[in-house]
């Protein structure tokens, strides 16, 4: 592991939910390194999603500093954040968020059309094991397949970081493992820095490093001396 791709210091996030003020982050420090798979583990409401949204340029911290390489994400304008997402970040969500009116290939092409150095949509889909379902619409794909299309879409532009929010949350163990394998394969083949949010402790064994979240803070961090292959994971 070489230099830090992300570095966040003293990050807090407060927002109002109805009448209540919620402290989603209460001061988190984090560094993510080039090429690593980091798993952010914790119960719901522990602040991990909020942190991921801040890193991904979807949301802004209330206080603290956060940098992506030489980009200051704290003080970036809305336009700069869009540009940042467009150039550097790949997202994978729990509910896939595919465009229903586009086929698998076209969902991936959606992103490659606006990137400077993309891979072929076909290649990206082959990478996640869907080379044979290029022309299917989301409604014709299973949940696991849809999620793998989402991963293909996320990596096709060769992003610097891949941010995955509960990528297996809507899937059962057997299908979920296929998705994790796809993520691991991408990481090994392309060396993409990957952050996976999950409340599923089983997944932590595939990570290089694990961050444990609780009550808006990072409670502990540890490095996996020996990573497990995703195929060995089950829950």
């Amino acid at each position: 592991m070489t230099e830090a791709v992300f570095s966040g210091r003293g990050l807090t996030k407060t927002y109002r939910s109805g009448e209540v003020e919620v402290h989603a982050l209460r001061g988190a420090d984090i560094d993510l390194f080039e090429g690593e798979i980091a798993v952010l583990l914790g119960p719901s409401g522990s602040g991990k999603s909020t942190l991921l949204n801040i890193l991904g340029g979807l949301d802004r911290a209330t206080s603290g500093t956060v940098r992506f390489r030489d980009h200051d994400l704290m003080n970036a304008s809305e336009r700069e954040l869009t540009q940042y997402r467009r150039e550097h970040v790949g997202f994978v969500f729990q509910f896939y968020n595919l465009i229903p009116s586009l086929t698998a290939r076209e969902n991936v092409a959606l992103v490659t059309e606006i990137s400077s150095n993309p891979m072929d949509p076909e290649k990206a889909l082959a990478l996640v094991g869907l080379g044979h379902r290029l022309d299917h619409f989301p409604s014709q794909l299973s949940g696991g397949e849809q999620q793998r299309v989402a991963i293909a879409r996320a990596i096709a532009k060769r992003p610097d970081v891949l941010l995955c929010d509960e990528p297996t949350g809507a899937l059962d163990s057997k299908i979920g493992v296929l998705v994790l394998e796809a993520l691991d394969h991408v990481n090994q083949t392309l060396g993409t820095t990957t952050a996976i949010i999950t409340h599923n402790a089983a997944i932590q064994s595939m990570a290089h490093r694990v961050f444990n979240f609780g009550d808006g803070r990072i409670i502990s961090t540890h490095v996996n001396a020996k990573r497990q292959n995703p195929s060995e994971i089950s829950w």
Binding site: T82, E87, I99, P100
Partner: peptide, 14 residues
């Protein structure tokens, strides 16, 4: 809305 938001997340401009 969801589709449009997805596009925004993917880096499409307003």
């Amino acid at each position: 809305a969801r589709e449009l938001a997805s596009l925004r997340v993917l880096g499409f401009t307003e």
